[in-house]
């Protein structure tokens, strides 16, 4: 029997971590204990930022990571985070099936094998007032935490303010920030209703967590074992998607029942944001080149 340590960045109670634990149990059982996967949630082994490198270099055989965080290395990794391109769970699945091949190829070049990928709840806009159009957004202080969100602020005429994740609720309480883009789950987990009034389900994008294995380790497995892995992965991907949907509903209901206004965007706002989306897709295409174009074309053709 062989023990596989599997670092996870998010807390044990997070649905991704629960899903990964089920996957680990599935593999352990499927291989008859020949490979025992032990999950280490909450960054207790490696922090999120280090997990990909740790798997890549064989420090651990397997791990889970929010791949879009590595878009600096290869724009393909950021395909799931283009604002207002794929704006629903169905679209997210479509985009992913268009992109999966290219992502697998990029990972292969980094000594990694992709097993499965599960989306987070869709990203929505938090505001401290009613917003019905792009014009309403002008001049609002918006939390920008990476290049894409800074660009988003620029395109919508909002004022970018830089705030680290740990300081978000305080920033809203003190008016340092008046808006941000994040999933309903973020607001639910950090009780944002105490400081923010409106949440718009614009479903800007659905970032994904991907589970990957070290390529050398993978090559050393028997076909039989590989089959166990692929079967468990397929199950984890399907279960994870359902969990993400359930969690989205749970957290949005939670925001609403705590007094936050959870709203669908107006047609005007939708149209204005779609324009922003086009600009940002172009931006990404410039970085991602022909491979990127092929993905976006395939997605749009569907």
């Amino acid at each position: 029997a062989e023990k596989w340590d599997m670092p996870l960045a998010y807390p044990a109670t997070n649905f991704h971590s629960e899903n990964a634990a089920a996957f680990a149990a599935c593999v352990t059982e499927g291989t008859g204990g020949e490979i025992e996967i032990v999950t280490h949630p909450g960054g207790s082994l490696f922090g999120g930022a280090d997990i990909k490198r740790a798997v890549q270099t064989g420090q651990v055989p397997i791990g889970e990571r929010l791949l879009s965080a590595h878009a600096n290395e290869d724009p393909i990794f950021g395909v799931d985070s283009i604002p207002f391109l794929a704006t629903s769970f169905d679209d997210s699945v479509k985009l992913w099936s268009a992109a999966e091949g290219a992502v697998e190829e990029a990972l292969d070049g980094q000594n990694l094998v992709l097993l499965y990928s599960v989306p987070w709840p869709p990203q929505g806009l938090y505001f401290n007032k009613e917003v019905n159009s792009g014009a309403d957004m002008k001049g609002i202080k918006f939390r920008a935490y990476n290049a894409a969100t800074a660009k988003l602020a620029e395109l919508t005429g909002m004022l970018p303010v830089q705030i680290e994740a740990a300081e978000v609720s305080q920033a809203f309480a003190t008016g340092v920030a008046e808006s941000m883009i994040s999933s309903g789950a973020t607001g639910y987990d950090s009780k944002l209703w105490e400081n923010v009034s409106h949440f718009y389900e614009v479903d800007a994008w659905l970032p994904r967590n991907s589970v990957m294995v070290n390529k050398d380790t993978w090559a050393g497995l028997s076909d039989e074992t590989k089959k166990v892995f692929t079967d468990c992965s397929a199950k984890a991907e399907a279960d994870g998607l359902q969990k993400a949907k359930d969690y989205t509903k749970l957290t949005l209901d939670g925001l609403a029942s705590n007094g936050m206004k959870v709203l669908k965007p107006s047609d005007q706002l939708k149209a204005d944001l779609a324009l922003v989306g086009e600009a940002m897709t172009d931006e990404w295409l410039k970085a991602a080149g022909d491979k990127g174009k092929a993905i976006v074309d395939a997605f749009k053709a569907n």
Binding site: Q56, T57, N72, E73, N146, A150
Partner: peptide
Amino acid sequence: YWSRKLNDISQGQDA
């Protein structure tokens, strides 16, 4: 050496 070889780039905005 490996960071260079693997082209490991910061995940922040500094890249």
